[in-house]
Amino acid sequence: MRHHTINYVELPAQQLEASKAFFSKVFGWSFIDYGPDYSAFVDAGLDGGFFRAPLSASAKQGSALVVLYSANLEDTLRLVEAAGGTVLQEIFSFPGGRRFHFADPSNNEFAVWSE
């Protein structure tokens, strides 16, 4: 670990089991459960976890936006939809690439980008 770097991120999960299944299926993440109300994710690029809560994270509500990378944006979009994610913003271009936004089963907003 490096001093003063982002090391871990925690996100709420209204539907903890559904969120774990979604991220495993779409992105290949693995999970380690720490009791019934917390699950850490690994193999995600940055370590973190989901905690059971009646909350959700949305950039429009002031939450930080977690942005994932994809080598094939269209394929990832199809996987998100097939696994029950909700597309919040279709693929759009921005300086440096393209991305889309989606909500997971716990209604947390994420984005996926590609060059």
Rank of each mutant, 00 (worst) to 15 (best):
E109Q: 10
A40T: 09
H4Q: 15
A103L: 10
E115Q: 13
G35M: 01
F23C: 01
G48C: 11
A57V: 08
A21H: 08
G49D: 15
A103M: 06
P54Y: 02
R99H: 03
D37V: 04
N107Q: 15
G35T: 02
A82L: 05
T86F: 02
K25G: 00
R2G: 11
D47E: 14
A111G: 12
P95A: 07
E109Y: 00
A18P: 14
H3S: 11
A83V: 01
A57D: 13
D33W: 00
A103V: 06
Q14Y: 04
S70A: 11
E90H: 07
F102G: 06
E74C: 00
A103P: 12
A83S: 01
R99G: 06
F41V: 08
S114M: 03
F51G: 09
I91Q: 06
A21S: 12
V26C: 00
I32S: 11
F41W: 11
A53Q: 10
L79V: 01
A83E: 08
G48E: 15
S93E: 15
H101Q: 12
F23P: 07
E81K: 10
Q89E: 08
L77W: 08
I6Y: 01
E109R: 01
T86E: 15
G48A: 11
S30H: 05
K60F: 08
S24H: 05
A13M: 05
P95W: 03
F94D: 15
S58Q: 13
I6A: 06
F27Q: 09
Y69G: 08
G84S: 14
K60C: 12
S106Y: 02
Y38A: 07
L73H: 03
W113R: 06
L11S: 06
A64T: 15
F27N: 08
Y34L: 12
D43N: 12
F50E: 08
Y69D: 13
F100D: 06
F27H: 07
G48P: 15
A71I: 03
M1A: 09
F51H: 10
S39H: 07
L88E: 14
R99A: 04
A59K: 02
R99L: 01
V26A: 00
I6V: 11
A44V: 10
G97L: 00
Y38N: 09
H101Y: 13
G96I: 04
A64G: 15
V80Y: 07
L88D: 14
L11T: 06
A71E: 15
L68C: 05
S56P: 08
A111H: 09
Y69H: 10
E81F: 02
S106T: 04
F41H: 07
F100M: 02
N72Y: 06
A53C: 06
E81A: 07
T5C: 14
K20E: 15
G62Q: 09
F102A: 03
G84C: 14
R2L: 06
L68K: 03
F92H: 14
E90G: 09
V67Y: 05
Q89W: 00
V9G: 15
I6R: 04
E10D: 12
S19F: 00
Y34S: 14
R2N: 12
A53H: 07
S63L: 01
H3C: 07
A18R: 09
A71M: 03
P12V: 05
S24V: 01
S58K: 12
V80I: 12
A57F: 04
F27D: 12
Y69P: 04
S24G: 07
F94W: 14
G48N: 13
E115T: 12
V42N: 08
W29R: 09
E81T: 13
S30Y: 00
K20N: 11
G85Y: 03
A64I: 15
